[in-house]
Design a protein around this nucleic acid. Sequence first.
DNA 1: CTGAAAGCGCTTACAG
DNA 2: CTGAAAGCGCTTACAG
Lengths: 340, 340
Amino acid sequence: MVNIGDVARAAGVSRSTASYALSGKRTISAAVRARVEAAVAELGYTPNAGARALATSRTSVIALLGQFYEDEFAPAMLQYILGVTDRARELGYDTLFVSDADGSAALRRISDSRMADGFVLLNVAENDERLAALRAAPQPGALVGLPGDAAGVDAFDLDFVAAGRLMVERMHELGHREVVLVSQPEHVVERGGAYVWRLANAAADRAEELGVRLHRYYGASSQPAIGRDLNAFLDAHPAATGLLLNNEAAAAALPHVLQTRSLAVPDDMSVIGRYSDTFARTFSLPYSAIDSAPDLLGRRAVEHLVSRIDGTADADTHVVDLIAPVIDDRGSLAAPPSRH
Amino acid sequence: MVNIGDVARAAGVSRSTASYALSGKRTISAAVRARVEAAVAELGYTPNAGARALATSRTSVIALLGQFYEDEFAPAMLQYILGVTDRARELGYDTLFVSDADGSAALRRISDSRMADGFVLLNVAENDERLAALRAAPQPGALVGLPGDAAGVDAFDLDFVAAGRLMVERMHELGHREVVLVSQPEHVVERGGAYVWRLANAAADRAEELGVRLHRYYGASSQPAIGRDLNAFLDAHPAATGLLLNNEAAAAALPHVLQTRSLAVPDDMSVIGRYSDTFARTFSLPYSAIDSAPDLLGRRAVEHLVSRIDGTADADTHVVDLIAPVIDDRGSLAAPPSRH
DNA sequence: CTGAAAGCGCTTACAG
DNA sequence: CTGAAAGCGCTTACAG
């Protein structure tokens, strides 16, 4: 393969001059620069990534640590991944995608072998084991998901507290006084899925403040169980006029459940979901929903990570960036049916 | 960071001896080996990936090239990716995941900079532009998807011809004489989605041989359009008793459509789909279906790629590995309703 | 069985 | 404005 020595020879300059001409790190006469560039174009030179990494201690690679659970329905996972890889490329980085079950070990391996300049962690849990490994690593990291302790790292997530409040407030404004909240399954909570209880607790608190009765449930993460669950919850609360969903599978199953129960949206039942816009479009879910914005979160995490790698970001300050929830109106919200 | 010189010093040997002790590439006395291993453990030594790549011309990284289209419903894409990354790790490789819109340029970039030892291409089309770049690259490649010309590469795919035949044969065996085949949208075909016409043509040929009337359609790739499409196709062929689906969105929309039409499966209508098992489970799709096996295909592609990298695979022979279709029976197939 | 040295392909102080 | 040389951290012929 053609190396920088070949380029230098073709351009009639030294290797260091060729290198500087390409990096622009010192002033080079226009004539020399032109000759070097011509040589590069003619020979088809591309720097060897390993050699460059060895010389500079920079790889231009970020490592993306997924975290997948067998029993988890994570329809937006690919959207997070694409947000990260696309934005990384725009910023000049490639992405090493790591799906090892043992994320901590993988992080140490990548870190110790200097394969990446930084880490993006997906699906971060309340007490995420990977954080200890990340804090011990010399490379910076950015999280998608908010752990209990985000000290020393940058974290990006939807503001689930605000989301819970917003859902309840919107229902209250419309006149609803009794609503059901369907969360992810309990095993997601036990595993440290903090977004579940953040949203649920905030919704419950706000409901109490506003005088709204809120019934909290965990639902299964797949069909047909979630359909049965939804029916059971609605059976238990025939007076409920609003449904809040923090569970993608429930959203996907709901049209069928409501049809079976002969309930029209929003005339008989108002619905607010929380899921990604892509998910909504894929299944044409007709519910107003708070966009969980996986693409945006992935992009933000990468942007901030790169500013840390560059040293642009303030080393003493870490950010917790919670994006404000916005309800995409798809027409599933209205005043409750009048009781006669 | 601790390097092999530190290890050598701690063990009281030369750097080359330390290196050989770790690689096992020449015989080392038990005593020395033990001292080296102790030093490695004590110091926490991990080889620098860039330096090793520079010295060996091996990165232990494979590059995975996704190919995403805005208007494509690709629910199994993540399964392919995880099949690749998981199997790669088992074989000692990390995975660089590339989602660049311009796959050819990305492939050249990765290849020229020697960032990976080989390539896995996903979602390969009939005349995939990336193939020219792959053939020009010194690294080997494995395809998931079968292009028109697979010369010089290894290709892995579901046998869509056999799948088309199998669908028709099963319907015929059960006594069906008029069936509807719903394929992916025409734009998938125009883009080179060869699996669409391979399955459809094979099904049509086999239907003609067996005296089965087969009505071919393209359907939209998302709701609500695909629901309308399905209704229109069924309206057009009231005598059809079987439905063949080579379109995931159609499968997801079908339960609702059939319910609306008051058609019971399999009493009124027999159904065979073609989608991944994960997809079926996620939406609890109650249709017998040919598993498109994304995980398996990803794993096979990596296995073969690694054997090429190792030089284990026969350099003169390339494989086209089409996995035989198998119908997972979920009870959606029966004899057609008797006409009275 | 082990060591000294060259070399992989870059970048970047050091010198002019 | 440019060049010769050192060094990044490995591996592996070459020599003993």
